[in-house]
């Protein structure tokens, strides 16, 4: 029974830890499928975390904080589009600029407004998202297996966790079952084909970036107004890059990207769980070794299991219409 509880709690943490990765990977799919590299997922996630926390603190409502975070991230996406789509600048440089800008900006603004470098005030219960208990979670808990799955794994998460996993089939549907998705994929593969079909290539890329901004805002708000109750310096901690890696492992496909995100989330959950645990016959594993698990797995995945990742054909290339 103890063992079963351990497994349930491990899966529960995996779902929670993977949430920002899933949002970011889905955001990345929209940008990169349209042919625009998005290295700035990290910066935008950080921006969203900051704006959501500050907005929620001043306005007293986490939903308003989320809305402001969406506006901030869409604006950053438009900035990226302005530099790299309209003015055909180098997409990676534009992303790196955004990432550096946001690290400095969030730290400086926090210092100016709250007197603490890179830290915002703690949010009270009204100002943050709380865990959602699914109906009958308490009464069903005692049913073997089913009860454990329902009450200990599925119930009791923040709203973002549910939204993240719902977003995956939605993204799949949009990308593969709608005319918008067809145009999105085409514009990342061969923008000339899209142009000669009478569709505005630039408008398509801006639309994709706008959706990208909305999705990444959820990841940031999840960090600062749900799992934590404030923003702190560099709290995105590389999740944007990890999500980008997951998206590439997933070959720019929502389903496989989800699997990659869950795998990253699982190794992270596992390393937290294993810290300080005595294993039979081995004893306690040094914490440094455990913390290395996610990275080792990343390298192994990259080296062997994934096969060749084929990026959208026109990725990274600005569309130039006239000679």
């Amino acid at each position: 029974m103890e063992f079963l509880y351990d497994i349930a709690s491990l899966i529960n943490s995996t779902l929670r830890i993977s949430t920002p990765l899933v949002f970011a990977a889905m955001a990345g799919i929209f940008a990169e499928r349209s042919g625009v590299i998005d290295f700035s997922l990290e910066g935008k996630m950080l921006m969203a975390a900051f704006v959501a926390a500050v907005g929620s603190y001043f306005l007293g409502n986490p939903w308003l904080g989320l809305l402001l975070a969406i506006i901030a991230c869409v604006s950053l996406s438009m900035l990226h589009g302005f530099a790299s789509v309209t003015y055909k600048g180098d997409q990676v440089v534009s992303c790196v600029a955004i990432n550096i800008l946001i690290i400095g900006l969030t730290t400086a603004l926090a210092a100016a407004w709250f007197g603490q470098a890179g830290l915002t005030p703690t949010l009270n219960e009204d100002q943050r998202f709380l865990e959602v208990n699914l109906p009958f979670a308490e009464s069903l808990r005692d049913i073997p297996i089913v009860g454990t799955i329902y009450s200990d794994i599925l119930s009791g998460h923040y709203i973002f966790v549910y939204l993240a996993y719902l977003s995956v089939p939605l993204v799949f549907w949009v990308v593969f079952k709608t005319s918008f998705g067809l145009r999105l994929r085409a514009v990342g593969e061969n923008p000339s084909a899209v142009d000669t079909a009478g569709i505005n290539v630039f408008a398509m890329r801006y639309k994709a970036l706008a959706i990208n901004g909305v999705l990444i805002a959820f990841a940031g708000a999840h960090l600062s107004t749900a799992v934590n109750a404030n923003f702190f310096r560099e709290m995105s901690a590389g999740r944007g890059y990890l999500a980008l890696a997951a998206m590439i492992f997933g070959k720019w496909h929502p389903k496989t990207a989800l699997v990659a995100c869950l795998l990253f989330g699982f190794t992270d959950a596992l390393q937290i769980r294993l810290q300080g645990v005595e294993l039979p016959a081995i004893g306690e594993i040094p914490v440094q070794l455990i913390q290395a698990i996610p990275y080792v797995l990343t390298v192994v995945l990259l080296a062997g299991f994934v096969g060749k990742a084929i990026a959208p054909n026109a990725i990274g290339q600005p569309y130039i219409k006239e000679r």
């Binding site: 085409a186 593969e189 000339s192 899209v194 054909n313």
Partner: peptide, 27 residues
């Protein structure tokens, strides 16, 4: 018909032809 074909190589013939003229939001 351009000298360099305006086709998306990893799309099917059908997808290439309806691109931009899908006539519906959801297939």
């Amino acid at each position: 018909v351009h000298q360099h074909f305006m086709l998306v190589e990893n799309f099917t013939v059908l997808e290439n032809i309806i691109l931009g003229f899908e006539g519906e939001l959801v297939f």
